[in-house]
Amino acid sequence: MSKHDKKLEQAARAAWMYYVAGETQQDIAEKLGVSRQVAQRLVALAAEQGLVSVNISHPVAECMSLAQSLQRRYGLDVCQVVPSDGLDSPGIHQMIAVAGAEVMAHTLKQSAPQIIAVGSGRMLRATIDELPTFDRPQHSCVSLIGAIASDGSCTRYDVPLWMAEKTQGRYFILPAPLFADSPDDRTLWCNHRIYRTVTEKAAQANVMFLGIGHIDAGCPLNADGFISDQQVAQLQQQRVVAEMLGHFIGEDGERVSSELDTRLTSVTLGAHTQRNIIAFCGGKEKHRAICAALKGGWISGLVTDEASARAALAQS
Protein backbone atom coordinates (compact mmCIF):
# COMPACT_ATOMS: atom_id res chain seq x y z
CA MET A 1 0.00 0.00 0.00
CA SER A 2 1.46 3.40 -1.01
CA LYS A 3 1.92 6.28 1.44
CA HIS A 4 -1.00 8.10 -0.24
CA ASP A 5 -3.26 5.05 0.07
CA LYS A 6 -2.33 4.66 3.74
CA LYS A 7 -3.25 8.32 4.29
CA LEU A 8 -6.63 7.80 2.60
CA GLU A 9 -7.14 4.65 4.63
CA GLN A 10 -6.59 6.56 7.86
CA ALA A 11 -8.77 9.43 6.63
CA ALA A 12 -11.59 6.98 5.84
CA ARG A 13 -11.31 5.46 9.29
CA ALA A 14 -11.44 8.93 10.84
CA ALA A 15 -14.46 9.80 8.68
CA TRP A 16 -16.35 6.73 9.87
CA MET A 17 -15.66 7.72 13.47
CA TYR A 18 -16.54 11.38 13.00
CA TYR A 19 -19.52 11.31 10.64
CA VAL A 20 -21.13 7.99 11.57
CA ALA A 21 -20.16 7.13 15.14
CA GLY A 22 -20.30 10.76 16.32
CA GLU A 23 -16.80 10.73 17.84
CA THR A 24 -15.08 14.04 18.58
CA GLN A 25 -11.76 14.92 16.98
CA GLN A 26 -10.10 14.43 20.36
CA ASP A 27 -11.67 10.94 20.62
CA ILE A 28 -10.41 10.12 17.13
CA ALA A 29 -6.91 11.38 17.97
CA GLU A 30 -6.71 9.13 21.02
CA LYS A 31 -8.05 6.06 19.24
CA LEU A 32 -5.86 6.47 16.16
CA GLY A 33 -2.81 7.40 18.24
CA VAL A 34 -2.29 10.78 16.57
CA SER A 35 -2.43 14.40 17.72
CA ARG A 36 -5.72 16.29 17.69
CA GLN A 37 -4.38 18.46 14.86
CA VAL A 38 -3.65 15.37 12.75
CA ALA A 39 -7.12 13.99 13.49
CA GLN A 40 -8.62 17.29 12.38
CA ARG A 41 -6.62 17.19 9.14
CA LEU A 42 -7.66 13.58 8.49
CA VAL A 43 -11.35 14.46 8.79
CA ALA A 44 -10.80 17.47 6.51
CA LEU A 45 -8.86 15.30 4.02
CA ALA A 46 -11.75 12.84 3.84
CA ALA A 47 -14.08 15.67 2.83
CA GLU A 48 -11.57 17.19 0.39
CA GLN A 49 -10.95 13.87 -1.36
CA GLY A 50 -14.68 13.22 -1.86
CA LEU A 51 -14.70 10.27 0.54
CA VAL A 52 -17.70 11.68 2.39
CA SER A 53 -21.09 12.15 0.77
CA VAL A 54 -24.31 10.59 2.02
CA ASN A 55 -22.10 7.62 2.91
CA ILE A 56 -18.35 7.11 3.12
CA SER A 57 -17.32 5.93 -0.31
CA HIS A 58 -13.76 4.88 0.48
CA PRO A 59 -13.76 1.55 2.32
CA VAL A 60 -11.18 0.71 4.97
CA ALA A 61 -8.85 -1.90 3.46
CA GLU A 62 -8.61 -3.93 6.68
CA CYS A 63 -12.40 -4.12 6.83
CA MET A 64 -12.58 -5.25 3.20
CA SER A 65 -9.98 -7.93 3.89
CA LEU A 66 -11.88 -9.18 6.93
CA ALA A 67 -15.15 -9.27 4.97
CA GLN A 68 -13.54 -11.31 2.19
CA SER A 69 -12.04 -13.72 4.72
CA LEU A 70 -15.42 -14.20 6.41
CA GLN A 71 -17.05 -14.87 3.05
CA ARG A 72 -14.48 -17.52 2.19
CA ARG A 73 -14.45 -19.15 5.63
CA TYR A 74 -18.20 -19.34 6.11
CA GLY A 75 -19.52 -19.38 2.53
CA LEU A 76 -21.35 -16.06 2.83
CA ASP A 77 -22.92 -14.42 -0.22
CA VAL A 78 -22.86 -10.94 1.35
CA CYS A 79 -20.52 -9.50 3.98
CA GLN A 80 -19.79 -5.96 5.15
CA VAL A 81 -17.40 -5.11 7.98
CA VAL A 82 -17.27 -1.64 9.54
CA PRO A 83 -14.42 -0.10 11.57
CA SER A 84 -14.67 -0.62 15.31
CA ASP A 85 -11.19 -0.36 16.83
CA GLY A 86 -11.37 1.83 19.92
CA LEU A 87 -15.13 2.38 19.73
CA ASP A 88 -17.80 1.54 22.28
CA SER A 89 -20.96 -0.41 21.46
CA PRO A 90 -23.23 2.57 20.60
CA GLY A 91 -20.74 3.82 18.03
CA ILE A 92 -20.29 0.34 16.56
CA HIS A 93 -24.04 -0.20 16.34
CA GLN A 94 -24.50 3.11 14.53
CA MET A 95 -21.84 2.16 11.99
CA ILE A 96 -23.46 -1.23 11.40
CA ALA A 97 -26.83 0.49 10.97
CA VAL A 98 -25.45 2.78 8.26
CA ALA A 99 -23.67 -0.04 6.40
CA GLY A 100 -26.64 -2.36 6.88
CA ALA A 101 -29.02 0.18 5.36
CA GLU A 102 -26.92 0.14 2.19
CA VAL A 103 -27.20 -3.65 2.04
CA MET A 104 -30.97 -3.50 2.57
CA ALA A 105 -31.29 -0.83 -0.10
CA HIS A 106 -30.00 -3.23 -2.78
CA THR A 107 -33.22 -5.23 -2.37
CA LEU A 108 -35.56 -2.30 -1.78
CA LYS A 109 -34.44 -0.45 -4.91
CA GLN A 110 -35.57 -3.28 -7.19
CA SER A 111 -38.63 -2.58 -9.29
CA ALA A 112 -39.79 -6.22 -9.37
CA PRO A 113 -42.08 -7.03 -6.42
CA GLN A 114 -40.10 -8.36 -3.45
CA ILE A 115 -41.24 -10.17 -0.33
CA ILE A 116 -39.04 -8.95 2.51
CA ALA A 117 -39.21 -10.95 5.75
CA VAL A 118 -38.02 -9.15 8.87
CA GLY A 119 -37.26 -10.19 12.43
CA SER A 120 -37.14 -7.79 15.36
CA GLY A 121 -34.68 -6.11 17.69
CA ARG A 122 -32.74 -2.96 18.37
CA MET A 123 -30.12 -3.44 15.67
CA LEU A 124 -32.68 -4.01 12.93
CA ARG A 125 -34.70 -1.02 14.07
CA ALA A 126 -31.60 1.20 13.96
CA THR A 127 -30.68 -0.09 10.51
CA ILE A 128 -34.14 0.55 9.08
CA ASP A 129 -34.07 4.04 10.59
CA GLU A 130 -31.06 4.78 8.35
CA LEU A 131 -32.94 3.86 5.17
CA PRO A 132 -34.29 6.56 2.87
CA THR A 133 -37.91 6.30 1.78
CA PHE A 134 -38.49 4.22 -1.35
CA ASP A 135 -41.54 4.46 -3.59
CA ARG A 136 -41.99 0.71 -3.83
CA PRO A 137 -45.61 -0.10 -2.94
CA GLN A 138 -45.24 -3.36 -4.90
CA HIS A 139 -42.98 -4.76 -2.14
CA SER A 140 -44.42 -6.66 0.82
CA CYS A 141 -42.95 -6.80 4.31
CA VAL A 142 -43.65 -9.88 6.40
CA SER A 143 -43.06 -10.32 10.12
CA LEU A 144 -41.16 -13.46 11.15
CA ILE A 145 -41.79 -13.16 14.86
CA GLY A 146 -44.56 -12.14 17.21
CA ALA A 147 -43.86 -9.05 19.29
CA ILE A 148 -46.21 -9.76 22.21
CA ALA A 149 -44.69 -10.52 25.63
CA SER A 150 -46.29 -12.77 28.25
CA ASP A 151 -47.95 -9.79 29.97
CA GLY A 152 -49.62 -8.70 26.72
CA SER A 153 -47.31 -5.74 26.10
CA CYS A 154 -45.59 -5.23 22.74
CA THR A 155 -41.90 -4.61 22.29
CA ARG A 156 -40.81 -1.25 20.91
CA TYR A 157 -38.63 -3.09 18.42
CA ASP A 158 -41.39 -4.57 16.26
CA VAL A 159 -39.59 -3.41 13.13
CA PRO A 160 -41.48 -4.78 10.08
CA LEU A 161 -43.94 -1.89 10.28
CA TRP A 162 -41.01 0.53 10.06
CA MET A 163 -39.73 -1.31 6.98
CA ALA A 164 -43.16 -1.11 5.33
CA GLU A 165 -43.27 2.62 6.00
CA LYS A 166 -39.92 3.02 4.24
CA THR A 167 -41.15 1.17 1.12
CA GLN A 168 -44.80 2.36 1.12
CA GLY A 169 -45.69 -1.33 0.72
CA ARG A 170 -47.97 -3.75 2.55
CA TYR A 171 -47.16 -5.12 5.99
CA PHE A 172 -48.13 -8.58 7.26
CA ILE A 173 -47.95 -9.05 11.03
CA LEU A 174 -47.50 -12.44 12.69
CA PRO A 175 -50.51 -12.60 15.05
CA ALA A 176 -49.03 -14.44 18.02
CA PRO A 177 -46.86 -13.96 21.11
CA LEU A 178 -43.26 -15.11 20.73
CA PHE A 179 -43.84 -17.85 23.30
CA ALA A 180 -47.37 -19.14 23.88
CA ASP A 181 -48.56 -19.95 27.40
CA SER A 182 -48.55 -23.70 26.72
CA PRO A 183 -48.07 -26.19 23.88
CA ASP A 184 -51.86 -26.35 23.44
CA ASP A 185 -52.04 -22.57 23.35
CA ARG A 186 -49.32 -22.56 20.69
CA THR A 187 -51.40 -24.93 18.59
CA LEU A 188 -54.34 -22.53 18.77
CA TRP A 189 -52.24 -19.55 17.71
CA CYS A 190 -50.47 -21.39 14.90
CA ASN A 191 -53.64 -22.91 13.43
CA HIS A 192 -55.31 -19.54 13.00
CA ARG A 193 -56.02 -18.77 9.35
CA ILE A 194 -54.18 -15.43 9.40
CA TYR A 195 -51.13 -16.99 11.09
CA ARG A 196 -50.96 -19.65 8.36
CA THR A 197 -51.37 -17.03 5.62
CA VAL A 198 -48.52 -14.91 6.99
CA THR A 199 -46.11 -17.84 7.52
CA GLU A 200 -46.83 -19.12 4.02
CA LYS A 201 -45.94 -15.69 2.67
CA ALA A 202 -42.77 -15.65 4.77
CA ALA A 203 -41.77 -18.98 3.22
CA GLN A 204 -41.78 -17.24 -0.18
CA ALA A 205 -39.58 -14.33 0.95
CA ASN A 206 -36.85 -13.16 -1.41
CA VAL A 207 -34.73 -12.10 1.56
CA MET A 208 -34.83 -12.25 5.35
CA PHE A 209 -33.28 -9.50 7.49
CA LEU A 210 -32.52 -10.62 11.04
CA GLY A 211 -30.58 -9.80 14.16
CA ILE A 212 -28.58 -12.29 16.21
CA GLY A 213 -29.38 -12.27 19.91
CA HIS A 214 -27.04 -13.26 22.71
CA ILE A 215 -28.07 -15.15 25.83
CA ASP A 216 -27.04 -13.60 29.11
CA ALA A 217 -28.65 -12.04 32.16
CA GLY A 218 -30.23 -8.80 30.99
CA CYS A 219 -30.08 -9.70 27.29
CA PRO A 220 -32.94 -8.22 25.21
CA LEU A 221 -35.12 -11.35 25.38
CA ASN A 222 -34.75 -11.27 29.16
CA ALA A 223 -35.02 -7.50 29.60
CA ASP A 224 -38.13 -7.30 27.41
CA GLY A 225 -39.93 -10.01 29.38
CA PHE A 226 -39.88 -12.86 26.87
CA ILE A 227 -37.77 -15.22 29.01
CA SER A 228 -37.23 -15.23 32.78
CA ASP A 229 -33.97 -15.08 34.75
CA GLN A 230 -34.43 -18.78 35.55
CA GLN A 231 -34.83 -19.64 31.86
CA VAL A 232 -31.70 -17.65 31.01
CA ALA A 233 -29.76 -19.63 33.62
CA GLN A 234 -31.09 -22.92 32.24
CA LEU A 235 -30.15 -21.99 28.68
CA GLN A 236 -26.66 -21.03 29.81
CA GLN A 237 -26.30 -24.42 31.50
CA GLN A 238 -27.08 -25.93 28.09
CA ARG A 239 -24.25 -23.80 26.62
CA VAL A 240 -26.64 -21.69 24.55
CA VAL A 241 -24.89 -18.53 23.32
CA ALA A 242 -27.21 -17.23 20.59
CA GLU A 243 -30.79 -17.02 19.44
CA MET A 244 -32.49 -16.14 16.17
CA LEU A 245 -36.28 -15.67 16.20
CA GLY A 246 -36.37 -17.56 19.49
CA HIS A 247 -34.40 -20.55 18.13
CA PHE A 248 -31.58 -21.24 20.57
CA ILE A 249 -28.07 -21.98 19.25
CA GLY A 250 -25.18 -23.61 21.08
CA GLU A 251 -21.47 -22.82 20.91
CA ASP A 252 -21.05 -25.40 18.15
CA GLY A 253 -23.62 -23.66 15.97
CA GLU A 254 -26.28 -26.35 16.28
CA ARG A 255 -29.84 -25.92 17.53
CA VAL A 256 -30.30 -26.58 21.25
CA SER A 257 -33.63 -28.01 22.36
CA SER A 258 -35.40 -26.52 25.36
CA GLU A 259 -38.85 -26.57 26.92
CA LEU A 260 -39.47 -23.21 25.21
CA ASP A 261 -39.49 -24.93 21.80
CA THR A 262 -42.93 -26.40 22.46
CA ARG A 263 -44.31 -22.86 22.90
CA LEU A 264 -42.38 -21.01 20.18
CA THR A 265 -44.55 -19.46 17.46
CA SER A 266 -42.02 -17.72 15.20
CA VAL A 267 -41.22 -18.81 11.66
CA THR A 268 -39.00 -21.89 11.57
CA LEU A 269 -35.28 -21.46 10.91
CA GLY A 270 -32.56 -24.09 10.73
CA ALA A 271 -28.82 -24.55 10.61
CA HIS A 272 -27.06 -24.97 7.25
CA THR A 273 -29.68 -22.82 5.56
CA GLN A 274 -30.11 -22.46 1.81
CA ARG A 275 -32.18 -19.32 2.25
CA ASN A 276 -31.15 -15.71 1.67
CA ILE A 277 -30.80 -14.63 5.31
CA ILE A 278 -28.78 -11.50 6.09
CA ALA A 279 -27.96 -10.70 9.72
CA PHE A 280 -26.98 -7.36 11.25
CA CYS A 281 -25.04 -7.71 14.48
CA GLY A 282 -21.95 -6.45 16.29
CA GLY A 283 -20.32 -5.39 19.52
CA LYS A 284 -18.23 -7.32 22.05
CA GLU A 285 -21.27 -8.80 23.80
CA LYS A 286 -22.27 -10.47 20.51
CA HIS A 287 -18.98 -12.17 19.61
CA ARG A 288 -19.94 -15.67 20.75
CA ALA A 289 -23.41 -15.37 19.25
CA ILE A 290 -22.07 -14.29 15.85
CA CYS A 291 -19.51 -17.12 15.87
CA ALA A 292 -22.23 -19.66 16.63
CA ALA A 293 -24.53 -18.40 13.85
CA LEU A 294 -21.66 -18.55 11.36
CA LYS A 295 -20.47 -21.99 12.48
CA GLY A 296 -23.95 -23.42 12.11
CA GLY A 297 -24.60 -21.84 8.73
CA TRP A 298 -27.72 -20.04 9.97
CA ILE A 299 -27.09 -17.03 7.72
CA SER A 300 -25.98 -16.31 4.16
CA GLY A 301 -24.97 -12.70 4.77
CA LEU A 302 -23.59 -10.60 7.62
CA VAL A 303 -23.00 -6.94 8.42
CA THR A 304 -20.73 -6.65 11.47
CA ASP A 305 -17.67 -4.88 12.89
CA GLU A 306 -13.90 -5.45 12.84
CA ALA A 307 -13.58 -6.98 16.31
CA SER A 308 -16.51 -9.34 15.74
CA ALA A 309 -15.07 -10.39 12.39
CA ARG A 310 -11.68 -11.12 13.93
CA ALA A 311 -13.32 -13.14 16.72
CA ALA A 312 -15.18 -15.26 14.15
CA LEU A 313 -12.03 -15.81 12.08
CA ALA A 314 -10.08 -16.83 15.20
CA GLN A 315 -12.39 -19.82 15.65
CA SER A 316 -10.74 -23.12 14.78
Rank of each mutant, 00 (worst) to 15 (best):
L144Y: 07
I92R: 00
D184M: 12
L76N: 05
I128R: 01
A67S: 08
H287N: 13
I215P: 01
R125L: 14
A105R: 06
D224T: 07
T273P: 03
Y157I: 05
P137D: 08
I96P: 01
S89Y: 09
I92D: 00
G301Q: 02
H192K: 14
G211V: 03
P132N: 10
V54I: 15
A293P: 04
I92S: 00
V82R: 02
A242I: 03
V82T: 06
W16F: 05
A147H: 07
F280D: 01
L235V: 03
N222L: 06
S57D: 15
K284Q: 15
A223L: 11
L108R: 03
S35F: 11
S228M: 07
T265I: 04
I227W: 00
L210G: 02
R239Q: 14
K286I: 02
Q204G: 11
A242M: 06
T262R: 10
L210A: 05
R136H: 08
H247Q: 12
G218I: 08
G211M: 04
K166E: 03
R156F: 10
Q234E: 15
D27F: 02
L260T: 00
A205C: 08
D224C: 10
G169A: 09
L32G: 04
L313H: 06
G296L: 04
K109A: 14
T107E: 13
C190H: 08
L269V: 09
V82L: 08
A14H: 00
L269I: 07
R72W: 12
L66N: 01
C219P: 05
V232M: 07
Q237Y: 10
K109V: 15
R186Y: 03
I96E: 00
F172P: 02
A312H: 04
S120Q: 11
A21S: 08
L51M: 15
G296D: 01
L124P: 00
Q49G: 09
A117T: 04
R156N: 14
G152K: 03
V60P: 00
R263K: 14
Q80L: 12
S65L: 14
A312Y: 01
A112S: 15
L260K: 01
A205E: 02
G246F: 01
T265F: 00
T262W: 06
Q94F: 06
H272F: 13
A289S: 09
Y157D: 05
A15M: 10
M208Y: 13
R41H: 11
L313I: 09
R288A: 15
A39H: 04
I116D: 02
E251A: 13
E306F: 01
R156C: 11
G250Q: 08
E48C: 12
L245T: 05
C79M: 05
R125T: 12
L302A: 03
A12T: 06
A12S: 14
C141L: 14
S300P: 05
V43N: 00
L45S: 10
P90R: 00
D181T: 11
S266K: 04
D135L: 12
L235R: 01
V142G: 00
K3D: 13
P137I: 07
L108P: 04
Q71A: 11
